[in-house]
Design a binder for these strands. Structure first.
Lengths: 209, 209
DNA sequence: ATAAATATCCCATACATATGGTATTTTTAG
DNA sequence: CTAAAAATACCATATGTATGGGATATTTAT
């Protein structure tokens, strides 16, 4: 028997899902609350749910903060996000915080049931459009390879800056004069529209160069 | 009508799926090959599939190399991995190369059909245990968060450095004197065992602080 | 062939940074 | 309560950095 909890502020949705879950023979829901705070208030160590169905937009603490707190206290709980948000930021925040699944609110009840069973079974499930964003995230690293505006020599100088070398060091390692390094850096700044080393390092590390 | 192609070296599986797909009214498979090479040989610009069901362990070129080549030539094709491999390395290689879904070979035929429809529709689908590994990947970044040796004030200063602010700016924004900023930075350098701004920025951006 | 881009070098200068030392007040933890 | 840690502040000084100007050779592309 899978113990399910619901944290969802919309009374109609909350009670609808609760009823549906309690109608299933393999799962039971005995705590359905409208906020993280009120759920934490009734949570006792004797009766830890296996799966929590969690909204993001909640009165008081957000569902994402809720994930962190709940996973901190009870890492074994599987948290399934159940929300209308499909923006990448909320998705990745949720997953990083410890969610084990991410469902959009347009899914039919049997999908919710399936998702609960899957996460309880050690798997994960996301709505297809969420899964696509998650997968795209892996490809983004590769895709945005705009050709760098910098020349090879300039890139070499940038690598020196990133490694924390002084102009003098870069000059020595590249067998060029300090003045040449300065010139290159002036040009790099112009091309990248920056005005200090820190921004060059940031751009370089973020893959922009 | 969804045009499906299959690249799978096991004849029984290949022909089984082909038959199943051609039995579905909303999809058709007219190219089912045993290797990437032989698929590329018959691929012509008049008849590009919408979805390719791709194995990883293939004679000749691996399915992962196949993804790269096919996505390079025809980025609009959606590639669904269909394999026995469930190790993280192969999963992430596939996703980074451009796969839009990842199914384990133990899935029933209707799941394959559903996956084809989903990726054709702009979504993604993974087997539950694959999805869990993908999601775990996001949490791994957080888990190894050794407590920072820096105090809150010092972290604030670091953020200023990362943003490319000068000491003077940091002082102004933090309502402290330039000398205080210097003091904090001296301490930060000692704690992090670094000797210049560049290294602090690198450590900060890499999540080490 | 000729213009543009690149790589090299020099001068000058204001400001920023790294590093040493010292010292007071406030906060935190044992 | 007391010692340690943190936050604040100052002085001094050698280097480093950012920015302006200019110059010349070499390479690349039209």
């Amino acid at each position: 028997m899978i113990q399910v909890a619901i944290i969802e502020d919309d009374q109609v949705i909350r009670e609808g899902i609760e009823e549906y879950i309690n109608y299933q023979p393999e799962m039971i829901c005995d705590s359905a609350k409208e906020s993280v705070e009120s759920f934490l208030a009734i949570l006792n160590s004797e009766n830890i749910p296996d799966v929590i169905l969690m909204d993001i937009g909640l009165p008081g603490m957000s569902g994402i903060s809720g994930i962190k707190i709940l996973k901190e206290k009870h890492p074994q709980i599987n948290i399934l996000m159940f929300t209308v948000y499909h923006d990448s930021h909320k998705i990745f925040q949720s997953l990083c915080a410890g969610a084990s699944g991410y469902l959009l609110k347009n899914v039919p009840f049997p999908e919710i049931k399936k998702a609960i069973e899957i996460v309880h079974d050690g798997g994960s499930l996301m709505s297809p459009q969420i899964a696509r964003k998650v997968i795209d995230h892996f490809q983004e690293n590769k895709k945005k390879t705009k050709p760098s505006p910098l020349t090879e020599k300039e890139k070499e100088i940038v690598l020196g800056l990133v490694d924390g070398l002084s102009y003098k060091m870069i000059a020595q390692e590249g067998f060029i004069s300090l003045e040449t390094v300065r010139s290159h850096i002036k040009n790099i700044y112009k091309k990248l529209h920056v005005h200090c080393k820190a921004e060059v390092i940031k751009k370089s590390l973020s893959g922009e160069i």
